[in-house]
Design a protein around this nucleic acid. Structure first.
Lengths: 314, 314
DNA sequence: TCCTATTATGCTCATGTCGAGTATAATAGA
DNA sequence: TCTATTATACTCGACATGAGCATAATAGGA
């Protein structure tokens, strides 16, 4: 408490609220956008807002018409490299992750929703490792590593190999942010370049977004991929009734990788996350599938989550 | 993008950086404080700061003399109930969690460090469930539940029982924030009352702190208790060489509960988190203990962390 | 010197969880 | 009736986990 904590304008900062709202529609993971997919919904935090969350909900609804359900705070960024001149206010972005159901994604013009993997083509490993990795990313990353001092050469390649699962290393779906930041650092994504604005060029390096929105999206995807593994959040994306395969497809869309069917069901059932509704549907193809419903009781139970330490007796 | 995104002062907000810096000294978990333990180190984010983290480091070092090592972002709060008048700037607090080693905690006047469990007496279950729970908290929470509409009575007691492990329910060390907020909601902690400032009253309800600092501390403790279970962060708190029991005591201090000794060692060893230094120490009492060192390689390896989904084959 | 308290470490055992895969059941449509 | 397709039930081995028993080294007395 040494220096002036006063309310003078030297400390005034502009605070922006920004939302990553995810859904799964038609088996594809999508994110709510504005400006033809070039930006995430966002707006300034204002005196009229009762809370950060309330302000965010207002902006998203105003800009996209979608009311928000589940949301959680994601991260707070100071604008990356935009060093402001003396008189400008500095900008802070407080980001949130929201989850929406497919039906709410359908009611509206499809243009509002952009596919995750349009922005991050290297992240979808469901069918197979995306060709973009072997054909485009690997050579460019190798090039980036080699065009550096002997000291950092090894280290750069090691980081790249770890992040992208090269040299036989395993693919880790959670490293979405690290991968994007690595590509940024290597000058491979459009946002890292100060060149012409070719926002719509479909490329192996993904669609670009305004300012640091794509980085924020990467943060949101990473968080969601991590979280579905230990909290029952997938259900925020599901309709009230669903088959186990539909649930599995949703998880796979988010994780960007396939899941072992029988073991997936075993996992869901042993954790008692769902309950049988008694009904079935034949709309899925072969043998009719049971329809399940999320067991809301787990929301309470799971608050009391699990530990990992070898706890001593009583 | 409907309304004015302009840089007018209507949107100017005061941003404060605030740190929860944890260490373990003499077997007790402590937090770096200022003002005789009444507040966490903090200060405004200023134009001169190169980044949020850099600003935080400056403030903490200036206010306490401690340079910071490991830090990670914790959460961003808008000030709870302090609804500002029209001309005042609204305040946002961006909080960080920092970890420090014991020696850095010792070099300085001890007054800078406050014991966690002075602020949260109900959180230390190492010796036994703290008497404060049965003697003070349970009756007051029961009272709080019963003095409410019949509709919310059950629900209030259920929440309390779940959070504090009452009615034979298990204790969950990670619910630090929920417990604090429940006590706040029930009007049981000093910060929730607008009465006289009895900051130093030692009580079953814990030492109070300025503004919402105690809530932020609770957030930090909760995060740390969660994180030690899946990332090797404890080592940020350890000296370069240590015995396995010292490591265990540190974990226990943070978790607020005892750990099964043999299984703890098995866990550490099978995960290859440490390596034998070849040396031993007799300073621990009985049979001499091997001295271990953190295996820095895991920092890289563990970036590639674990999944939980039943991944399909290749 | 031998006994005791104290801490360090090694091992076992029953139970669970997880990755992988085999086998069987119900449908629709050709 | 055959085939393609999806749903569901089980089995097996490898490995992780909770709980404890047993043994090894020290220091400090009796």
């Amino acid at each position: 408490m040494k220096q002036s904590h006063g309310k003078d304008e030297r400390h005034a900062v502009k605070v922006e609220l920004i939302a990553v709202v995810a859904a799964v529609a038609g088996g594809q993971p999508v994110v709510l956008t504005i400006g033809q997919g070039s930006a995430l919904p966002s707006g300034p935090f204002e005196l009229g807002h009762r809370s950060l969350q309330a302000g965010l909900r207002e902006w998203v609804e105003q800009q996209t018409g979608h009311p928000l359900g589940y949301i959680e705070q994601l991260y707070t960024f100071a604008d990356r490299d935009r060093i402001s001149d003396e008189h400008a206010l500095r900008a802070i972005s407080i980001s949130y992750l929201g989850l929406a159901r497919e039906d709410s994604a359908e009611g509206r013009p499809r243009r509002d929703w952009g596919s995750w993997y349009g922005y991050f083509p290297w992240e979808d490993h469901r069918a197979a490792p995306p060709p973009a990795i072997a054909e485009t990313l690997t050579p460019r990353l190798k090039n980036w590593a080699e065009n550096s001092g002997t000291a950092s050469r090894e280290e750069r390649w090691h980081r790249a190999a770890l992040a992208f699962g090269l040299d036989g290393r395993p693919w880790n779906d959670e490293l979405v942010l690290q991968r994007y930041e690595l590509l940024y650092e290597a000058g491979l994504v459009a946002e890292a370049l100060r060149g012409p604005d070719n926002a719509h060029e479909p490329s192996a390096l993904g669609r670009k977004m305004v300012a640091d929105h794509r980085r924020i999206l990467a943060t949101g995807i990473a968080r969601l991929r991590t979280k579905i593994k230990y909290r029952p959040v997938v259900f925020e994306l599901m309709p009230p009734f669903f088959t186990l395969l539909q649930l599995q497809r949703t998880v796979e869309a988010l994780a960007g990788r396939l899941v072992h069917k029988q073991n997936f069901r075993r996992l869901i059932e042993q954790q008692e996350l769902v309950e049988d509704t008694g009904e079935t549907t034949t709309e899925t193809g072969g043998r009719p599938a049971k329809l399940f419903r999320f067991r809301p009781a787990v929301l309470m139970e799971r608050t009391v989550a699990g530990t990992k330490l070898p706890i001593a007796k009583a």
